[in-house]
């Protein structure tokens, strides 16, 4: 059992952690900007993007899928803006119209296209299959130095690591602009910060991360990780940097505990089956938020 630990447990856990951390970092800004549900909307419209890419190319190749999903996410952001301005309705309702319509389109296209020979269905898209992202050659520490075995790592690991790096770089390099345009957009605009550009980049990055994470772990983790850790962190502190650190911590804890509980945890309590790791990770992040809402020192904010 031990020799498989690295490949069967550590690698999927690491994938989960990377997905969780990249989402959580961006989630902080979404929560502060009251745009949390953009993550929800973007994760839903990834589906039609992927289906259209599949129909256009006829293959499950990753590049066109990622491209299709990213394009769909950007189109949906534009449509939401359009409906909001033309219909003069609240942003939530505009979002609801756009993402349900596009998701429905995705499902219908999926049903109409011939996807019988490839493993792709809506359930898979929703909660992925983290457990299957294993590294079979990772049979021991020596495999870490074996280039042949390393080549066999699940490609999702590399892609998610790249997405995480991009997110970290974005947050570090645009820190001042991000902070000022989040907390005081009017002042930011007046002092020459490209507020709209920062906002659009943030949403695009959410789309990129949602797409990358979605391919690895399904939509449900993406939505949960964009919102729950950041919301929980917000209840812990009033300062932004500690909030970011808390959210990363919560994301890692959710991913590790969730993955463990879905597999080994189930064995511990004596049930002979394993459950969806993605679902468990999302549920754990919800529990963490619940705890923070009960005992978080800043749960009422500065006024309380």
């Amino acid at each position: 059992m031990d020799e498989y630990y690295l490949g069967l447990v550590l690698v999927p856990t690491l994938i989960g952690v990377l997905a969780a951390v990249s989402c959580a970092l961006l989630g902080n800004f979404l929560v502060l900007r009251k745009q949390s549900l953009m993550g929800d909307a973007v994760s839903h419209v990834v589906l039609p993007g992927i289906v259209v890419a599949f129909i256009a190319t006829g293959s499950m190749a990753v590049a066109p899928m990622l491209l299709g999903a990213a394009v769909a996410a950007l189109i949906s952001a534009l449509l939401i803006e359009l409906v909001r301005n033309l219909g003069k309705v609240e942003p939530g309702a505009a979002m609801g119209v756009v993402f349900t319509a596009l998701f429905a389109l995705g499902v219908v296209l999926l049903e109409q296209s011939d996807t019988r020979n490839v493993h792709f269905d809506v359930e898979h898209a929703l909660y992925g299959n983290l457990e299957s992202l294993v590294w079979l050659d990772g049979t021991g520490l020596s495999a870490l130095f074996d280039s042949q075995a390393l080549a066999d790592l699940p490609p999702q690991l590399g892609r998610l690591a790249m997405a995480t790096v991009v997110v970290v770089l974005f947050v570090v390099f645009f820190w001042r602009q991000l902070v000022v345009s989040t907390f005081d957009p009017v002042f930011a605009q007046a002092s020459g910060v490209p507020v709209r550009f920062i906002g659009a980049t943030l949403i695009s990055l959410v789309a990129v991360v949602a797409v990358t994470a979605f391919e690895a772990v399904g939509a449900i983790i993406t939505i949960a990780m964009l919102i729950c850790p950041a919301a929980a962190a917000r209840l812990m502190t009033n300062r932004l940097v500690p909030q970011l650190l808390w959210s990363v911590l919560f994301a890692i804890v959710s991913a590790v505990v969730g993955f463990w509980a879905a597999g080994s945890g189930m064995e511990l309590i004596g049930s002979g089956f394993s459950v969806s790791a993605a679902g468990m990770i999302a549920a754990v992040s919800g529990i963490i938020l619940g705890l923070c809402a009960c005992i978080g020192p800043q749960r009422m904010g500065a006024l309380a």
């Binding site: 949390s36 549900l37 993550g39 929800d40 449900i220 983790i221 939505i223 949960a224 964009l226 919102i227 729950c228 919301a231 993605a278 679902g279 468990m280 990770i281 999302a282 549920a283 992040s285 919800g286 529990i287 938020l289």
Partner: peptide, 10 residues
């Protein structure tokens, strides 16, 4: 968003 995702996960 938090309720939606964690309940759905459960």
């Amino acid at each position: 968003g938090a309720v939606l995702s964690s309940f759905f996960g459960l």
